[in-house]
Design a binder for these strands. Structure first.
Lengths: 344, 344
DNA sequence: GTTAGCACTCAGGTTGTTCGAGTGCTAAAT
DNA sequence: ATTTAGCACTCGAACAACCTGAGTGCTAAC
């Protein structure tokens, strides 16, 4: 177990390093207000902290730098909570004060404000469309062979897709079918649509529709809703200004990682628990993330969790500030959404 | 006027520099097959070429590098046309062989293939939605206050927006109005919709609809179609691997330029003429583009130009290869689109 | 007109040196 | 038993000196 003095030193080292990005030496430390003992004492303590794995040297006679274990301890035990400046508060408020009725736009704006305020990269995982409920299905013929199928959900989200209409199907059949589907399926979550069609609606369709088979196939196409939540990025290039990424190689691997959205999506999916979640450097188990930390929070409608908002920064990021901002944005976003949807 | 030998030397210098990215010296040049005279002769010719502004030295005793004027002359007069490899041809074909019915997706795929094949960044300016013709307008109420307005165009494009419904408007009025609008407005280009409504449809509406005023306002909201063509990027980070951008500063200014989409959009808009257009370095008159060239082509339906596809690379890019690819993709894309739309 | 030869230039790599920030250890002070 | 002062030591970064190689321009001979 660490002594109080060791904790103090660890905290001051990390705070200083986060602030200035330079290895911290005993002399620098000794000058700090909070530190009342001499540099020699500090050196002894630092030697212990290093042995325990909380800090590292970049070379044999350099100052110390936090290790991943050090950051981990720091975020778990040493974070000093921070208050937002009035200015930041206002910025956040101003976003949510606008009456934006489209979920996607709101979510995108949230990502924007997060990256603006933090100067890191932010990612927002949109709500899963598949859990929205069907409000209306519409098929609008374009010409003899093709039509646009449109699905509107209760959240106002619109999915659309161009489909081919089998030659055997005529316009009135199409219309009839759309009517039947709407009658039976409004209110059903998109993900259950297919199932429900085969189990409950197929019978009805067979009775009323002539070319039942090809029709069902067309419907199948239509209802292939994307399963995955959309990711919205903002400030992708903010990382270019971080001094730890002055090395072009690091930037390349980081960018490659971000572009490769699949892996990153999977990583985000691991952060679904409520509250703030932090993963540091290699904890992310994703190459390209060695020098990065990811902080996430969730937003929700009422008690129903909807999605994740996240900030990606260097391991040397301002954890406490980012956490405060993230909490704030998540809660404001949740409030707006809850307010909006529960007034139905 | 340049002599044949000077032209040969200029061409070989640029070809070599494009290939290896290193300043080209007289000795290197003398070793080339095509060059039958000695390095001393070459030095004399190079001195002349430099005086005329076609090539430059990076420092007093370095080899030569093409100047912007040199590149300009090269692309205007010296390009040796190139054939696509079978492999590249196949890749392009495979994209357009799939039956993709959505314009946006097709366009996005085209951007993707362009950046894949060239390893540069590619940009595609989508067709202007405003020129599409209205196929159907639909308003689907979500709850008492809000509704989704959906506009489907003859190209299968779907625009949608959440609108607020004035309290004075009731459901049957809404329906009636949508019917009237559809009757009168189908086939009208989106850009003319507003005009047409005020001039021709307003009268009819006034006769049939109770809360005429607030209704017209709602309709106005609905028809605020984005005026600008969408830009689709692909391979944004490809530039990171170009040796000329090993300098972090250059990358930053380049990325900042790309992120700042407005300016870039304006630049692209200047390239609307048919055929291949090339602007080199500072010809682009956009800071961040000093070391870049932009090559564009247009795609069309029949004779009707629709949009622009572009490749953004370093000034030292493989002009001839890019031009070949761009031509190919543009023409294939045009063929598919023409085929598709003229079968209406 | 072309080329060989030569003196000259400069970027970039290597080496050596110095400086300063930092360390660990020891012995004295508290 | 802690804490501190002092000292020898280490290393990176910055700088200068030097060398090399690729390249040039010019001149005189072919």
């Amino acid at each position: 177990m660490l002594t109080d003095r060791q904790l103090l030193i660890l905290q001051v080292i990390i705070d200083d390093f986060i602030r200035y990005g330079q290895p911290v030496g005993s002399r620098t430390l000794a000058k700090k207000e909070k530190i009342t003992f001499s540099s020699a004492t500090i050196r002894n303590e630092m030697a212990d902290l290093e042995e325990l794995g909380y800090i590292e040297k970049t070379h044999i006679s350099s100052g110390r730098v936090p290790s991943e274990k050090g950051y981990r301890y720091y975020v778990d035990h040493l974070l000093s909570p921070q208050r937002l400046t009035q200015e930041d508060m206002n910025k956040i408020k101003s976003i949510f004060a606008e009456r934006i009725y489209e979920l996607e736009k709101l979510v995108q704006k949230s990502a924007q404000i997060l990256s603006d305020l933090t100067s890191y990269t932010s990612i927002v995982l949109g709500p899963a469309v598949k859990e929205n409920k069907l409000k209306r299905l519409q098929i609008i013929p374009l010409n003899k062979e093709t039509a646009v199928a449109i699905i509107v959900t209760d959240t106002g989200h619109v999915e659309n897709r161009v489909i081919t209409i089998p030659a055997a199907v005529n316009a009135s059949d199409l219309e009839k079918m759309v009517n039947i589907l709407n009658e039976r399926l409004v209110g059903v979550p998109l993900i259950d649509l297919k199932d429900k069609i085969y189990k409950e609606v197929a019978n009805v369709l067979r009775m009323h529709i002539y070319s039942y088979d090809s029709m069902l196939k067309t419907i199948g196409e239509t209802l292939d809703i994307p399963q995955e939540e959309k990711m919205f990025f903002a400030g992708k290039t903010n990382m270019l200004s971080q001094p730890e990424f002055s090395d072009i190689q690091k930037i390349r691997s980081l960018m490659a990682m971000i572009e490769q959205e699949k892996d990153f999506y999977r990583l985000l999916r691991k952060h679904r628990q409520k509250g703030i979640q932090i993963t540091i450097g290699r904890e992310n188990q994703l190459s390209g993330m060695e020098n990065c930390s990811l902080i996430t929070a969730t937003y929700s409608i009422g008690e129903e969790p909807l999605g994740t908002i996240a900030v990606l920064g260097p391991t040397r990021m301002e954890y406490s500030r980012v956490i405060t901002i993230l909490n704030r944005v998540a809660s404001d976003l949740s409030t707006v959404l809850t307010d909006w949807y529960q007034n139905d």
